[in-house]
Design a protein around this nucleic acid. Structure first.
Lengths: 97, 97
DNA sequence: TTGATAGGCAAGTCGATACTTGCCTATGGT
DNA sequence: ACCATAGGCAAGTATCGACTTGCCTATCAA
């Protein structure tokens, strides 16, 4: 499960999606589609984004809550924090003393 | 260049290699091959590992120094540190007060 | 109830990438 | 000089992953 985080982050479109969600939580699929088109010029189908969101969700990086016909997506940074210290050595570089 | 870091981390074998290097720096290609076989049971060709090392090196996660007929590989965590704060919100969780 | 909106499922295409195999170069020991 | 060791290059295969297309379900508004 924690291994999927890396594969989820491997795709540039998925990283854009996380960028969007860190800026504003609770977006729907269509909102995210519109944002990616207007702000980043990405011309992707709705289904493509939906599949990306599924990958992010199964990696635990995105959680979703259904409400009526809307499905809101929230960023969850907790998997990142657990995973990113894996290769950090006990003695960090202290570049700014 | 910083984008390649994520793709480099996407492969489980490359993550194993980083695990090996964080444990002991300055290993050669053959040492890494042997370690992966004995410790993790990975039966990969030397060439496969070499290609993985090339990916890690072009992502800046591994630096190598040639010395005679040996090429020693060192871990470089600096690209990780720059990249991993990208989606962390200004308000960190403070789990241990 | 009808139509429009928000989203899901499934199959198919196509390019990327992980891995192998075979051969070549270079350094060091004897 | 010779052979073994450490590594590199290049082409081929085969699997995986991103994206599309077409159709289906569900919710809300008129």
């Amino acid at each position: 499960m924690t291994e999927d985080v890396f594969k989820a982050l491997a795709d540039p479109t998925r990283r854009r999606i996380l960028d969007e969600l860190v800026e504003r939580d609770g977006q729907t699929l269509f909102e995210i589609c519109a944002r990616l088109v207007t702000k980043h010029g990405l011309g992707l189908s709705r289904q493509a984004i939906s599949q990306h969101l599924a990958v992010l969700e199964s990696a635990g990086l995105v959680v979703s809550r259904r409400q009526g016909r809307y499905k809101f997506h929230d960023l969850n940074t907790e998997p990142l924090e657990r995973v990113m210290t894996r290769w950090l050595r006990p003695d960090p570089p202290e570049s700014t003393p």
